[in-house]
Each structure stands twice: as C-alpha cells, then as structure tokens.
Amino acid sequence: MKLALSTLVFAFAASTIAQYDQESNPFNLAIVSKDQTIDGDTLSACHEGAAIESLCLSNSNSTSKPDPIPATVFHFNTSDTVVTPNASLGAPGYLTYLLRGGNFNVSEAMGLDINPTSNVALPLFWPSTDRAAVVSFDSNDFLNIQNYVVDTVNPPVSGEYRAYYRWYSCTTYYAGYTYVTLSWVLGEGKPQNPSCVKVNVKRVFV
C-alpha cells in the first residue's frame, strides 16, 4: 500500500495546483450555523482512501472518527492571470490541503464527488487538479461557488456572476468511512440526506 500511495502521489505532484499558483496565508475553516450544536466548530481533513480526504467537523462523533481532532490548516491558491468577475464575491481559486507522508508532501485541491443518485455532493481532496472545484472567498471570508448561468427559467439565461452558499453538515458514507462532513447540495432543492444541517463556511486566518 505504501508503494502504491507514493506512486499515485508523485505521478500527479507535478500537475497539482499548476494554474492557481499564488498561495495564501494559512487559515482554518469554521462552521457558521443556526444550529448551536455545530456553530463555531471547525473542519478537519479526514482519511477517505489512498491520498483522499474529506472535510470532517472537528468535534463530531462518528463510527469512523470517534474522537475530536484538531482543526486542519488550509490554503487558498489563486492566480494573477485569472479574471475575478466580482471582487466582493471573491477571486476564483482552489482550496488546498497539504498531505504529508513518510517520504512526500503534496498540495491537494478540493473537488466535489457527485453521486448521480443523490443531490448531496461530497467535497474531497485529491492529489490532482483534474477534479478540482473552483471556489471563492467573499469579502466577509465566506466560502462560495460562483456561476453566471441561471437554469431555473426556460430558456436558461446568462449574465452577472452569482455566489452560491449551498454548504451543509451531513453524515456521509464514502469508501467504507462514515463521517459528519461538509457537503454541497446540488441545485436549489433541500438535501435528500435527512441528516443534513445548513451551514456556512468562514475562513479564519491563523
């Protein structure tokens, strides 16, 4: 397993974070929610497989993570060559996590793992930007995903960029691991996962 993991990591290391190469200062990610049981909690990288991590709520209990764990340090990678459509909504870039191994360190970008039978997507860190999601932090340091196409009308229309904050805390299952994780709901509907609780995600520099 160690050989396979090292091979995987180094195969993608050269391409990781290639376009967005301006790294921010380190920060934690905090949960903001009307649910007082999770408001103020932080996010931590949780093992989901070979060089794959999800975003667990640091103080949650689950079958895979029974104890509270420290908040993880993240970075935000942007680029001087990529246009920012709306400064108040935030510059586009990759949310990144530094995976440390016995003989390697590699910066991983967050992407969304989509289950075609669910409207709840799981944010995961992979050692390649092939599946990376472009995200932003607005002027209040809240994490969002932007788009300029609106398909809630017929025909769909395009125009100004809008920021979406469809983050939830949900009990999720992936590759044998059950955690309480940050999740993203696809579209305007409510999450079909009954455990999901609405949250926002705030950047707090350390």
Rank of each mutant, 00 (worst) to 15 (best):
S6A: 15
N28G: 09
T81P: 05
K202I: 04
Q36T: 13
S62L: 02
A50L: 09
N115E: 03
Y165P: 07
V206E: 01
S6Q: 13
T84F: 01
T7P: 06
P26E: 01
L182C: 13
G93E: 00
L57C: 10
C170A: 12
S33E: 10
Y177I: 03
T117V: 15
G90F: 00
V135Q: 01
S136E: 00
I52C: 06
I17N: 13
T16H: 03
D141R: 11
G189I: 06
F125L: 02
Y165Q: 03
S24F: 08
V83C: 00
L112W: 10
S58C: 08
T7W: 11
N140D: 05
L8A: 10
T63R: 09
A50E: 11
T117C: 08
P123E: 04
N86R: 11
E53M: 11
C56E: 08
V206R: 01
V120I: 14
S118A: 15
R203Y: 05
A91K: 05
L186A: 09
D151T: 14
Y173E: 07
V149G: 11
V157I: 12
F12T: 10
P68N: 12
F12P: 06
A175W: 15
A18C: 08
I69P: 01
L98E: 06
T42M: 04
H75C: 03
T72I: 07
G159A: 01
N147H: 13
S62P: 02
G187R: 10
Q19P: 05
I38F: 10
K65S: 10
S44H: 11
G49S: 08
E188S: 05
Y174G: 05
S136I: 03
V150Y: 05
A132M: 01
F142L: 06
I52M: 11
A163P: 04
W184Q: 04
I145V: 15
E188P: 09
F10K: 14
P155R: 11
D130P: 07
E48G: 08
P155D: 09
P156W: 04
V82R: 02
L186D: 03
D113C: 09
K202A: 05
N119E: 00
V180F: 02
L3M: 09
E48D: 11
D39Q: 11
N115P: 08
A4N: 13
N193W: 01
M110W: 07
A175C: 06
Y174T: 06
P85K: 04
F10D: 04
A18L: 10
E48R: 15
I52P: 05
S107L: 13
A30Q: 15
G49K: 08
V197N: 00
K34W: 02
Y97W: 03
Y168L: 00
D39M: 09
L124Q: 15
V135C: 03
D41A: 14
A18F: 12
K65W: 04
A121K: 12
P66M: 01
L89S: 01
V180C: 03
T171V: 14
N147W: 12
P127M: 09
G90K: 04
V149R: 13
G102I: 10
P26L: 02
N193S: 02
V82C: 01
K2I: 07
